[in-house]
Design a protein around this nucleic acid. Sequence first.
DNA 1: CTTGACACCTAACTAAACTATGCGTAGTGT
DNA 2: ACACTACGCATAGTTTAGTTAGGTGTCAAG
Lengths: 112, 112
Amino acid sequence: MRGQALKGHLDLLLLAVVADGPKHGYAVIEELRLRSEDAFDLPEGTVYPALHRLEKAGYLSSSWSEVQGRRRRTYRLTKRGSSALGEQRQSWNEFSQAVGRVLKGVPWPSTP
Amino acid sequence: MRGQALKGHLDLLLLAVVADGPKHGYAVIEELRLRSEDAFDLPEGTVYPALHRLEKAGYLSSSWSEVQGRRRRTYRLTKRGSSALGEQRQSWNEFSQAVGRVLKGVPWPSTP
DNA sequence: CTTGACACCTAACTAAACTATGCGTAGTGT
DNA sequence: ACACTACGCATAGTTTAGTTAGGTGTCAAG
């Protein structure tokens, strides 16, 4: 996946992943790689700050735990996060459809 | 259309529009608005520098003309631009499909 | 006892779109 | 005449957000 394609779409992806069940940061990264079939293999430096942003925005809440000597910060979707996810899904659809229309070519009435 | 959604996808859109026939900058903006059904109503400050970038990258070539007292800079797609467009279409498809898979939810084998 | 997976973090850099503004012509309205 | 809008180009400066690159520490395997 080339560089900065997901600018502006990262939050959507993160919210969507956490929406299917609370996850800690590292697991979010793995899940994203898994679901996208390796298209999204995000560096930690991308994901962790984004999760912090989302928590500060009230879309996620987090809690610490310790599993086999390793501390984890587990995130879950809040209500606000859930509705934000809905809106972002919506605008992703609009966006991708708009791109599709542009790529489809000339907008003439054409052969009906 | 919300803010910075098209980060990283603008070049694709511009190349696609110019690919259907040479256009000057202002016309590119209109065409984009038209084809996207108002989803993309880009400010000039976004489009002009991008066109310059694309020309510098060798994807577009430009020529000046004057039509009814107004000077126009008309862009046309180069060969390199054409193949770049192909690649960018490709990676857009991969990207949007990957997003789709992530949004679709849990990747379990599930009900077959 | 080093390497790699797991698990977290952040400062500094960078790319790229946006804001704001400028210039100038032509047409329309008052 | 004067103003306003559409047309048409341009660019400096700001902002946003992801990347780079480093740091800390645990645990299992070779």
